[in-house]
């Protein structure tokens, strides 16, 4: 464990807490893409298949449980909670996310570390996570104004993988034969997808103005 990875995990945790706060405090999920939340639940469920077979550390196991439980709770809340579900922007959250699932799975069958069930699903979860934010970014552009908590949620979600890139650089220089090409290249693509969001987020922070994404 290094400071970059710990900072990344904490930033990821903060993004989830901000989202839970937004849904709980405002009893609304307007501006949040249910499709992105479903993709993230799938990412965690397929990435942590080794939850009960491999033990890395108490921290690792607890964080996996938190990520799985929170992502499923958010999907449940947006689909089933009688108050929250009414505020879901169903008519603009129309990204065809099944294509993202299919593309990630096909790529995972072709490019993986080992041709085993667990490794193919691990690679699938890595590729899917890189693309999972797309429905959310599209929804933000369509819905124009972005409320603060939603903006902060997306910001922290994007920042956490940037910390992981620093973590991979650090591990590359400090550990022999450290190679995580799949996770690293996918993480670079994932962070790059946030580039324009980060730009507009920075502009809104500098001008102390509301976050506006161009349509």
């Amino acid at each position: 464990m290094n400071i970059f990875r710990f900072a990344g995990d904490m930033t990821h945790l903060i993004s989830i807490l901000v989202l839970l706060l937004k849904i709980y405090a405002t009893k609304s999920c307007s501006g949040i893409s249910l499709k992105t939340q479903e993709l993230y639940a799938l990412v965690f469920l397929t990435r942590y298949l080794d939850l009960f077979t491999d033990f890395i550390s108490v921290y690792n196991t607890i964080m996996k449980l938190v990520f799985i439980a929170s992502s499923l709770a958010i999907v449940w809340c947006m689909r089933m909670h009688r108050v929250v579900r009414r505020s879901y922007d169903k008519e603009i959250d129309t990204f065809r996310h099944y294509f993202l699932i299919l593309a990630s799975f096909l790529l995972a069958v072709l490019v993986h570390e080992k041709f085993t069930f667990q490794e193919i699903f691990w690679a699938f979860s890595i590729y899917l996570e890189a693309l999972a934010i797309l429905p959310q970014l599209v929804l933000l552009q369509r819905s124009g104004n972005v409320d603060n908590l939603t903006g902060q949620y997306v910001f922290f979600l994007g920042a956490y993988r940037a910390f992981y890139i620093l973590n991979w650089i650090y591990r590359y220089f400090t550990e022999q034969h450290f190679s995580r090409w799949i996770a690293c290249l996918s993480g670079i693509v994932q962070t790059a997808l946030y580039a324009d969001f980060f730009y507009y987020y920075f502009i809104s922070w500098k001008n102390n103005a509301k976050l506006q994404l161009p349509a």
Binding site: M63, K64, F67
Partner: peptide
């Protein structure tokens, strides 16, 4: 439970 370090990251 086997302790591994293959995917030690979240």
């Amino acid at each position: 439970l086997k302790v591994v370090d293959s995917h030690d990251e979240l």
